[in-house]
Computed example of a mutant assay.
Amino acid sequence: MTKGSVRFEGVTKHFDDVVALKPLDLDIAPGTLVTLLGPSGCGKTTTLRLVAGLESPTSGRIFIGDEDVTHLSATYRKVSMVFQSYALFPHMTVAENVGYGLTVKRVSKSELRPRVEEGLAMVGLEGFGDRLPSELSGGQQQRVAVARAIVLEPEVLLLDEPLSNLDAKLRRHVREEIREIQQRLNLTAIYVTHDQEEAMAVSDRIIVMKNAEIAQEGAPADLYERPNSAFIADFIGDANLLPVEVARSGETVDIVFDGRRLTLPTAFSTTGQANLVLRPHQLRLSHEASADSLPAEVSYAAYLGNQVQYTLDTALGEIFAVTVPDATPFRKGDTVHVGFDPVAARIVSI
Rank of each mutant, 00 (worst) to 15 (best):
V98R: 15
A345S: 03
L187V: 00
H281V: 04
T47H: 03
T12P: 11
A219Q: 14
I178S: 04
L316E: 06
G124H: 12
V146H: 12
D313Q: 04
V192G: 07
R226T: 04
V151A: 05
M209D: 05
F63I: 01
F268K: 06
I347A: 04
R331E: 06
D254H: 06
R261T: 07
A147Q: 07
L159M: 15
D222Q: 15
F340A: 01
D258T: 13
Y76P: 09
A201N: 09
E245N: 02
F231R: 01
G31Y: 06
G53F: 08
R143Y: 02
I190P: 07
V246A: 02
V322S: 09
R248F: 05
L278C: 10
A168V: 13
A301D: 05
M122H: 05
D160F: 11
H14N: 15
V94A: 15
H91S: 15
K332S: 01
E288N: 14
N240G: 00
D160T: 06
P342L: 05
V104F: 04
M1V: 13
Y100C: 11
V19Y: 10
R184P: 01
A296F: 09
A87D: 04
G129W: 06
I206A: 10
I255G: 03
I236H: 07
A296Q: 13
D16N: 13
G218N: 02
L54Q: 12
S293I: 15
V51E: 08
S299A: 13
V98G: 12
A274Q: 13
R131T: 08
F340E: 00
P154S: 14
A215V: 02
A315R: 02
D130Y: 00
R261E: 02
T2N: 15
E155C: 08
L24M: 15
Q273V: 10
F128A: 02
L157S: 07
S73Q: 09
A212F: 06
D27Q: 14
V11Q: 06
L125P: 05
T12F: 14
R331T: 00
Y224L: 09
L72N: 14
F340S: 01
K78R: 11
A327Y: 03
A315G: 03
V107G: 00
V246W: 02
E245W: 09
R113P: 00
H287G: 08
R61G: 06
D258P: 14
I232W: 08
P295S: 15
L36E: 08
I150F: 10
A147H: 04
V123A: 05
Q183P: 09
G259R: 04
F231Y: 09
F8P: 10
S108M: 03
Y191Q: 02
F83D: 01
H91V: 14
T263P: 07
L264H: 07
Q196A: 14
S56R: 14
Y300P: 00
Y224M: 08
S110E: 14
